[in-house]
């Protein structure tokens, strides 16, 4: 039995420890994603209420090209993230780093496209206060964008830690857990895209 009173400051953490902690972190992340679902629930439910009941609601068609492009960008980033996780579990440090970097770049592309789109709206005078549709549009895409930004910060830190050599075959759960989050960001967009651009 490990004696905490005699603990030195750099104990060795065994693979069994990492497996156990991976399960704890995964559960924590799933709980967080559950709470994220509830966070977006409020927005979606409000949007559906506005769509189904508000008399003056006008769904203004946005430019579908931007939306479709961003959907493809995010789906691709999901693929690269999944491949990064796959590689990290096999201890492929260099390939893991490459895929994380690729995911990061795709996230950048997403935000740049979103920025161009926002710029178009602002030029046309479509500010959030313009009408209730643009209110929801900026609310939903804005908070989704913040999640993308948060994911990018996480990815940058992971890339750096991976480069430093923190991860190996036994210890790589931060990449996997960040992957869960990144896929969730994709998941939200999968619903936002038809709800805002197509329907």
């Amino acid at each position: 039995m490990f004696d905490p009173a005699a603990q030195d400051h750099h104990p060795t953490l065994s693979p069994a420890f990492h497996r156990e902690r991976r399960d704890m972190r995964a559960m924590g992340m799933w709980l967080f994603l559950g709470s994220e679902v509830m966070f977006f629930t409020a927005f979606f439910a409000a949007y559906i209420v506005a769509r189904s009941a508000a008399p003056g609601f006008v769904a203004m068609p946005l430019e579908r090209g931007f939306g479709t492009l961003n959907t493809i960008v995010l789906l691709t980033s999901s693929l690269t993230m999944a491949l990064a996780v796959l590689n990290s579990k096999r201890g492929e440090r260099v390939k893991t780093g490459r895929y994380i970097a690729l995911t990061f770049l795709l996230a950048c592309v997403f935000l740049v496209v979103k920025g161009i789109e926002y710029a178009h709206h602002f030029e046309a005078g479509d500010f959030p206060s313009h009408d209730i549709f643009f209110g929801f549009y900026f609310l939903l895409t804005g908070f989704h964008g913040l999640h993308v930004l948060g994911g990018m910060i996480t990815l940058a830190i992971l890339w750096w830690r991976n480069r430093r050599g923190d991860f190996n075959k036994d210890y790589n759960d931060p990449i996997e857990i960040a992957g869960l989050y990144w896929h969730f960001v994709d998941l939200v967009w999968i619903f936002l895209f038809p709800a805002l651009y197509l329907l």
Binding site: F39, A42, F43, S129, F138
Partner: peptide, 20 residues
């Protein structure tokens, strides 16, 4: 999270003058 989201929408209404 529902409260956080509701608060965010209220702040949008107050600061960006949306009309949720």
């Amino acid at each position: 999270p529902m409260l956080a989201a509701a608060g965010a929408m209220l702040l949008f209404d107050r600061i960006l003058h949306t009309s949720f």
